[in-house]
Design a protein around this nucleic acid. Structure first.
Lengths: 164, 164
DNA sequence: TCGAGATTGTTTGGATACGAACAATATAGA
DNA sequence: TCTATATTGTTCGTATCCAAACAATCTCGA
């Protein structure tokens, strides 16, 4: 998934190739491993949990956010899902075409579009999310029980700094 | 960036909405924050570091891997960058069109394509990467100095489990 | 009431993203 | 030498993905 090189191999090569450059290698390692982990986990979920349902990662996240906040405003969904509103327009059209989500105009504010799940969408999420969570447990398994909260906190701190 | 809701707000809502479902909320929080952090950091880098050079995130990662492993085989780059070989074909074409990277056939193995940076590509990376690393330092700043290695290690452990 | 400015979702154009099918090349065994 | 099998990068079709431009709608002050 991450290529033919070991992680240690890659980091050693980076250190060697850039050692003359006055860089913070510790910060580099944190960021590098953040993206590797996110990418590996995402690929894992796409192939093992989402693919059987024909859902892309983003489509699933959009369904999930809608599930939690229903009825959800599109600006809300885009923010929570970390995608642009332009992207959301396309994803929502796909989800509507598949009969999993529905758009409706807000009565209060004619500019807003509200999104809800169809019964079929509800059923899919009720079936899919427990499977998803089972895999989350698997993925987190290598982290010592006592450290998972600390890991979540550190990641939250990074997000908070940038979103603040 | 992450939407109009606070992280705490969202997690509370999730807990409330799904509390009847027998889920591992700790694992969920770790995964959720992993993707939030990765997404927030990526957006931050795209807008503040990469956009001025007209580079996409993936284009930058491909340049970076090439920079480190030059001459790099495409399968190697795709693996390290976490993208499919089909995607890499397109990105490499873009980079060639912009005069930042070059393809060449391997003499040893006619199937392989080797990638190197052009002088212009070299110059761009030599200029860009220190700026990139400066932002990496900023992003990691909220993490206590003594915990950064632990954070990198935990992320590495997650990746290792999935790539193993 | 009315009009300038802000906000929202969509469209547009171009780049990224993947799986599957493909042609070219290499490798192994008979 | 020959041939079945494997590997590699590209092509194809379709779905994201984003910034910028856009039309519709709201807000707020004069």
């Amino acid at each position: 998934m991450t290529g033919s090189h070991t992680l240690a191999e890659t980091e050693a090569r980076v250190e060697n190739r850039l050692s003359h450059m006055q860089l913070d290698f510790e910060a580099m390692a944190v960021m590098s491993n953040l993206f590797r982990a996110a990418s590996a986990v995402r690929n894992h979920f796409e192939r093992n949990v989402l693919a059987p349902s024909g859902l892309s990662w983003t489509a699933f996240v959009v369904l999930w956010v809608t599930w939690i906040w229903e009825p959800a405003e599109t600006r809300e969904i885009a923010g929570e899902a970390g995608i642009s509103k332009a992207t959301l327009t396309g994803v929502l059209s796909t989800l509507e075409k598949r009969g999993l989500a529905m758009r409706s105009r807000s009565a209060d504010d004619g500019r807003l579009v509200l999104v809800t799940l169809t019964p079929e969408g509800e059923k899919l999420m009720a079936d899919l999310f427990p499977k998803f969570n089972k895999q989350e447990v698997e993925v987190v398994a290598p982290i010592a029980t006592g450290q998972r909260v600390a890991l979540a906190d550190m990641l939250r701190a990074i997000t908070a700094k940038l979103d603040g």
